[in-house]
């Protein structure tokens, strides 16, 4: 299960990459895409939408399940990955790069510091493994 060191994470299995100053990219982790299986459709917010930390901002549907995507931080949507409209399965094949979901202009930079580090997230996955086998 891949967990890039320079990304930040949430307990609900989103990743955050800091692009510049107050702009971040978010997606779902390798663990999340693996759990979901073949992704068949997505529903994401629109550019300009305001999102609030911890609130659902989108939905990812796989053949067998659907899961909400929660905003890791509050802010405004700057960009949405249009590629996913035609080929949402790229989230399965490349969750950390081509399979990104949205870019957000962050309202409060301190919220980024409160996200999990790669080490924290790996520890969380270790615990989940113990619970789920």
């Amino acid at each position: 299960m891949s967990v890039p060191k320079d990304y930040r994470y949430t307990e609900s299995h989103e990743w955050v990459r800091i692009e510049e100053d107050n702009v971040i990219t978010i997606g779902i982790t390798d663990y999340a895409q693996e759990k979901l299986g073949d992704i068949v459709s997505i529903d994401l917010p629109r550019v300009g939408d305001e999102v609030e930390r911890g609130e659902p901002v989108g939905m990812i549907d796989s053949q067998k399940a659907s899961t909400e995507v929660f905003a890791p931080v509050s802010g405004v949507v700057l960009e949405v990955n249009e590629l996913l409209n035609d080929d949402s399965a790229v989230i399965n094949t490349d969750p950390y790069e081509e399979g990104w979901l949205i870019r957000i202009e962050v309202e409060d930079l301190e919220q980024i510091d409160e996200l999990l580090s790669a080490d924290d997230y790996e520890e969380l996955l270790g615990k989940l493994d113990d619970e789920e086998g």
């Binding site: 299986g37 073949d38 068949v40 053949q63 067998k64 789920e132 086998g133």
Partner: peptide, 16 residues
């Protein structure tokens, strides 16, 4: 995956 007390295959190549 664990299902009803057994390790069962949820999928092989792809569900579709």
């Amino acid at each position: 995956v664990p299902f009803a007390g057994f390790w069962m295959p949820v999928q092989f190549e792809s569900i579709a």
